[in-house]
Computed example of a mutant assay.
Amino acid sequence: MNQRVKGKLIEWQDDRGFGFVQTPQNGGTSGQRVFVHIKQLRNQRRRPRVGDTLSFEQLPDARGNPSAIRVTLHGGWWSAGVLFALLFLLALCGVTLLRLMPDWLLGAYLLMSVITFISYARDKSAALKGRWRISELSLQLQALLCGWPGALLARHCLRHKSSKTRFSLVLYLMLLLNIALLIIALLAAGGYLGLDKFIH
């Protein structure tokens, strides 16, 4: 059996199911750039992403280039984005239970998060099959309209739209704008919702 080595995933083409992992330097020898295919992944709990740690055995391919076999993906489902989205939804549940926010608003966040997650899944499926895509504008508008928790969950779980810097920056802007609008709306309705008891 070949010796198992570890490396960092430095490139990943999710629509094609392959990428490259960089092995660490060993003494004075520089690390290798090793080809890895999704079919060699043994624990497919989620799709790989750039920066993941992989352990694998190494064999040369037909051209003599290093290739990874019997690959294990290290790391779980959690990320800062997932944690933030879940904590936000839990906070909304608490605020709603305290009657500081109308029930329909919590429902709006939950419903739009589900819709947005499904939209990401459909768009990823369309990309893999070469079909008509959902526009990025539509995805960003769904995020702005209370669906950003679902967008963060989808980006992490589905590994879709997670490597596009410009898309990510716009998504975070939609997130901040949505939260700002939520805070303004709650403060403006403070008297009706009973927030004035906490403010004064």
Rank of each mutant, 00 (worst) to 15 (best):
K161Y: 00
H200M: 12
P102N: 12
W104F: 13
L106D: 09
L105E: 13
L169V: 14
R166W: 06
G17S: 06
R33I: 11
Q140H: 11
W78P: 12
G76W: 09
T72P: 08
L152I: 05
G150M: 04
V50E: 01
L87T: 13
Y172W: 14
A154W: 05
D61C: 03
L141E: 04
L128N: 00
C146K: 09
Q44S: 12
L158T: 03
R42E: 11
M1R: 11
L173F: 09
Q58T: 05
R4W: 05
V170N: 03
Q44N: 11
C146H: 12
R33T: 11
V71R: 01
G75Y: 07
T72Y: 05
N2A: 14
G94H: 05
Q40I: 12
G191S: 06
D14T: 02
L139F: 00
A127C: 05
L9F: 02
D61Q: 03
Q58E: 02
G194F: 04
I179T: 05
H156V: 05
H160A: 01
Q3T: 15
L176H: 13
L187T: 09
L110E: 03
G150N: 02
L106E: 09
A151Q: 01
L144R: 09
L90A: 09
H37N: 01
L175T: 15
C93Y: 12
T72D: 11
S163F: 08
G191I: 08
T72H: 07
S135L: 07
L171I: 07
L106W: 08
K8Q: 10
T29V: 15
A151W: 00
L144G: 08
G28P: 07
K129S: 07
L175C: 14
D15E: 10
A127Q: 01
V82I: 08
R46M: 04
G190C: 09
I134R: 00
L193Y: 10
L83D: 12
Q25H: 14
Q25A: 13
L90I: 10
F35C: 02
D196K: 13
V21Y: 02
P149W: 01
D103M: 14
D103T: 13
I179F: 07
S135M: 07
A154N: 04
W78G: 10
K164E: 03
S30K: 12
V34G: 03
G190T: 11
G28I: 10
P66Q: 06
L98A: 11
N43V: 14
Y192T: 15
L97M: 10
A154P: 08
Y172C: 15
F88Y: 15
F18E: 00
R99E: 13
L128Y: 00
D123G: 03
L177R: 05
R131Q: 10
R46A: 03
D103E: 13
R166S: 09
L54T: 01
H160E: 00
N26C: 15
N178S: 09
H156P: 03
F18V: 00
P24R: 04
P66I: 13
M1Y: 12
L171M: 06
L111C: 14
I10C: 01
I115P: 03
G28F: 15
R122G: 01
W132S: 11
W132V: 15
R33Y: 07
F18M: 01
S67R: 13
K197G: 14
V95C: 10
R131S: 14
L105N: 13
C93R: 14
E57I: 11
I118C: 04
L105C: 10
V114P: 02
F198V: 11
S168D: 07
